[in-house]
């Protein structure tokens, strides 16, 4: 039994780590969803296939390119704090990024994907996909492509919850309906 002790200790460590990581992610995300501030963001989804995580709608944000203030050493892959401002249409817009969080107001921590010569950067946001039931994802894609092609007057946006710079995607809406409800009528039962 004495000989087995390190083995059992290692197993206990492995078990602890195996629970701590997913549980930590789940608890942190749940807390943001419960108590974070809600924002609305316009999107443009497409539908790739991810072997690890089932099907999802990949999200792109029209306003995810921002002008950087001059005088700072901006570079790609840099982590920045991006303030969120709500416009008159109730949708959020990204403010001017800074290396440190703003003193007031909500912000997102994002990464600069690239910085062009004019000082305009595209942002890598912490949410870039919305997972759906594998049967629903292709239908969601078709619905949004139709909307984008002008065949319908549908609008697409997401709601996110933000707290202390962390953000969690809450829901995807098409034509002011949660995607699941929007698709409920179009999917065969």
């Amino acid at each position: 039994m004495t000989r087995l002790k390190p083995t059992w200790l290692l197993l206990a460590l492995a078990m602890l780590l195996q629970w701590a990581l997913p549980a930590g992610v789940a608890l942190h995300s749940e807390a943001i969803l419960r108590s974070g501030t809600r924002y609305y963001l316009h999107t443009a989804p497409v539908d790739p296939l991810d072997a690890f995580r089932g099907r999802y709608v990949a999200l792109r944000f029209a306003d995810a390119s921002v002008r950087l203030p001059a005088g700072l050493p901006w570079r790609a892959d840099m982590r920045v704090a991006v303030p969120l401002h709500v416009g008159p249409d109730h949708f959020a817009r990204f403010g001017t990024p800074s290396p440190t969080p703003p003193a007031q107001g909500d912000y997102l921590m994002a990464t600069l994907r690239n910085v062009d010569a004019d000082g305009v950067a595209s942002l890598d946001l912490p949410f870039d996909r919305y997972y759906l039931d594998e049967r629903a994802a292709p239908a969601a894609e078709r619905a949004y492509r139709a909307a984008n092609a002008g065949k319908t007057s549908a609008d697409a946006y997401v709601t996110i919850r933000v707290r202390n710079g962390d953000a969690v995607l809450e829901a995807l809406f098409i034509d002011n309906l949660p995607i699941q409800r929007y698709l409920a009528g179009s999917l065969p039962h």
Partner: peptide, 20 residues
């Protein structure tokens, strides 16, 4: 099996909370 179950759990928690 335990290692794969962990890999799946981590990926699927990200899926459930819509994390990139």
């Amino acid at each position: 099996f335990a290692a794969l179950a962990f890999a799946a759990a981590l990926a699927l928690v990200s899926q459930i909370f819509q994390l990139g």
